[in-house]
Amino acid sequence: MRLAVLSQSARIYSQIAQREGFNVLAVDGFVDADTRQAAQQVYRWPGLREQDAGDHLAALFEVLDAFAPDAVLVGSGFEANEAGYEALFARYTLLGNRPETVGRVKTPSWLKACCDVHQVPSPPIAATRPSTGQWLYKQAGQCGGHHVQHWQAASEMLANGYWQALQPGQAVGLLFLAHGQTVTLIGVHALRQHAEGYAYAGATRLYDDALYRAANKLLQTLVPALGLVGINSIDAIWHAHVLHVIEVNPRLSASMRLYADLPLIQAHIACCQHGRLPLLSQPSAYASHCIVYARQEVEVSHLTFPDWLEDRPSGGTIAAGQPICSLYAEGYSDQEVLLALRDKKTRLETLWGTYVCNRIEFNIH
């Protein structure tokens, strides 16, 4: 089966699909060295990073037509490009959510109303600037957390901007399979955020019975009303043994890295094509991945990338605020995983030197 995988970073989906025996075209915003190794063909498409792909769709379709995929899978990059997603859905066999479903769940007011109707906790939202309290200013339809600001810092009001009350607690993600009224939890993980903001910086697999019970209850209550299909994820806040829904991600999730030993692409396809939710065994090991960001501009030619790094860039210049690479570790406890990540950080500091590492945010806490 020939799969085209489209995402700002298609590496992990391509690697899982390759291991499962699929022939992969990776359409990616970066096309790093690992993605090149994980796919039979790669195409760097700027529309995945610009969030406004109208001028680039013809070039994308030319590449997809030449590859002639049996199916298309989508990760991040189309959240703010509804027209592009609709065109993709109309032209190819896209295994994922319908455009109208994506549009609904990515509309903050619709999702908030849905949570309220089903008595699922979710922070208040506002269309106009609040006068008191702690709020976050966000842009509807965006992804990755780069767009999130404390409301006092929001200097420019955008047409798709809105405010969401700041909910204290631990940021977590719920990865799940869905089809109609049926939903299966794959895993729960802590979300790692950029030290200087809310950008996604990785995740750590969690094992907490109370959290898993709450996650299953939330999914069974809310997801049937969302109309989702296949692998999706929910961002939430875990506070005082209550989950508060922050956002729904109606697409493949980067957190799949934590569960990459499972046949996730096969499960997604079975769910989307045949309505089957296969049983997936729960991983026993602890795991964590973190994204290394550039604080200041970094020349890739100045860096050496060991084989144990992931998302290794293939060249060029990395601008401030952009990802450089990723670190991954597994172990029998949270502490063992944290020590392994810190060891890799120390090895990189030795390899790259103080000057370069002062320009980098490792996001290991």
Rank of each mutant, 00 (worst) to 15 (best):
A39F: 02
R257L: 12
A199K: 00
Q119Y: 04
Y332W: 09
V24H: 09
A126W: 00
T101Y: 00
A195Q: 12
D307L: 11
G197I: 04
L111V: 04
E330T: 15
T221I: 15
Q193P: 00
W238S: 06
A319C: 05
L3P: 09
W308N: 10
R129V: 08
R129E: 11
K345G: 03
R359F: 00
A190I: 01
A127H: 00
A159H: 15
A201C: 01
Q170T: 10
V31T: 13
V148L: 09
G21M: 08
F176D: 13
L60R: 06
D334K: 02
P123K: 07
H179F: 12
Q40P: 12
A58H: 03
W308M: 05
V27R: 10
D32R: 05
L158P: 01
Q152D: 14
Q273N: 08
R192S: 02
S255V: 09
S314R: 07
A236S: 10
F67M: 13
G103V: 01
L258S: 06
G173S: 14
Q170W: 01
T317C: 09
Q40L: 15
E86A: 13
F67Y: 14
A68L: 09
S255L: 08
A329N: 05
S14R: 09
L279C: 07
Q142T: 12
A178P: 02
S253R: 05
H365I: 08
D55Q: 12
S14V: 12
Y200R: 05
V74G: 05
V188H: 02
A270P: 03
Q18L: 08
R19W: 05
I291K: 06
A153F: 04
S284I: 07
Y328P: 04
T350R: 14
T317E: 13
P313W: 11
H118V: 04
G54Y: 00
K138Y: 09
I291F: 02
T132C: 07
P278T: 06
D28Y: 04
A340C: 04
M1P: 11
L57T: 01
Y198L: 08
G321C: 03
L280Y: 02
S314D: 14
S326N: 09
N249G: 03
W151A: 08
V24A: 11
A90L: 14
S301W: 00
A71Q: 10
Q220E: 15
Y293R: 06
S281K: 10
W110T: 10
G75M: 14
A236D: 12
F61K: 02
I231T: 08
A320M: 14
I186H: 02
P250T: 03
V356N: 12
H146W: 00
A270V: 05
V223W: 13
Q41G: 00
R104C: 08
Q142K: 07
Q149A: 04
L309T: 08
V72G: 05
A90P: 04
G47D: 09
I324N: 01
G202M: 04
N81L: 09
V120M: 04
P283L: 03
L3F: 02
Q164F: 02
P130Q: 04
E86C: 06
I269W: 10
A38Y: 06
L348Q: 12
I324Q: 01
G54I: 01
A33L: 13
G145R: 07
W163A: 02
D235I: 03
P323F: 04
Y355W: 11
K345D: 11
A87S: 03
E361F: 11
G316C: 12
S284L: 12
V105F: 03
S131F: 00
W163K: 01
Q18S: 11
L175D: 04
L191M: 10
